[in-house]
Amino acid sequence: MPDESKLPISELQPDQIVQAAITSHQPWGITANLIAYESVGASLDVIRRGSEPGVKALAMNLPPVGTTIDLAIGALRSWHYEPWVWVDLTCP
């Protein structure tokens, strides 16, 4: 049974602040689960977005896996694998 407290993906918008639970560290950045939204893939590519001031600061001190932090939606993309939608995160 789906979690009734989850919000639909259609409510996600660029520049929106979301809570993200860090799920892994990668050589290029972090992956995360978005709190309160149905399943989407989400990541912050610190190599590609490293010139952005907030991302540069985050990259110098990556939060531990399991930490929940506020991030901003940079872009929404269709994805060729399940979960079908990928959220490109950035720092607010």
Rank of each mutant, 00 (worst) to 15 (best):
P8F: 02
G29S: 05
A57E: 12
V85L: 11
P53V: 00
S78A: 10
A57R: 09
D88Y: 13
A21F: 00
G54A: 06
Y37V: 00
L34T: 02
D88T: 00
G74V: 07
P53N: 01
Q26W: 05
C91E: 01
A57Q: 11
E11V: 04
P63A: 11
T23V: 04
E82P: 12
Q19R: 05
A75K: 15
T68G: 10
I9R: 15
G74L: 13
C91G: 05
Y81G: 13
V85T: 15
A42Y: 00
I69N: 07
S5N: 10
A32D: 00
W86C: 08
P63D: 09
V40W: 12
P27D: 02
L62A: 05
T90I: 08
M1P: 02
L62Y: 02
P53H: 00
M60E: 15
A72C: 11
G54L: 03
A36N: 15
P2G: 08
M1E: 12
L34Y: 01
W28M: 06
S78Q: 13
L7G: 05
A57C: 06
V46F: 02
Y37G: 04
V85W: 03
A21L: 04
G29W: 01
H80V: 10
V87A: 09
A42V: 07
A75H: 14
E4K: 06
V87C: 04
V40L: 10
D15S: 13
I35H: 10
T90E: 05
G29Y: 01
Q16E: 04
P83F: 11
Y37H: 09
D70G: 11
L58G: 03
W79K: 14
A21Q: 06
E82W: 06
V46E: 00
A57G: 04
S10I: 11
T23C: 04
E82I: 09
L12M: 14
W86D: 09
S43G: 12
A20T: 01
P83R: 13
D45E: 09
S39Q: 06
T68I: 15
Q13W: 10
L12S: 06
E82T: 11
M1L: 12
G50S: 08
S43R: 12
P8C: 01
G29K: 05
T67S: 15
E11T: 09
M1C: 10
D45C: 12
R77K: 15
E52R: 09
Q13I: 05
S51A: 06
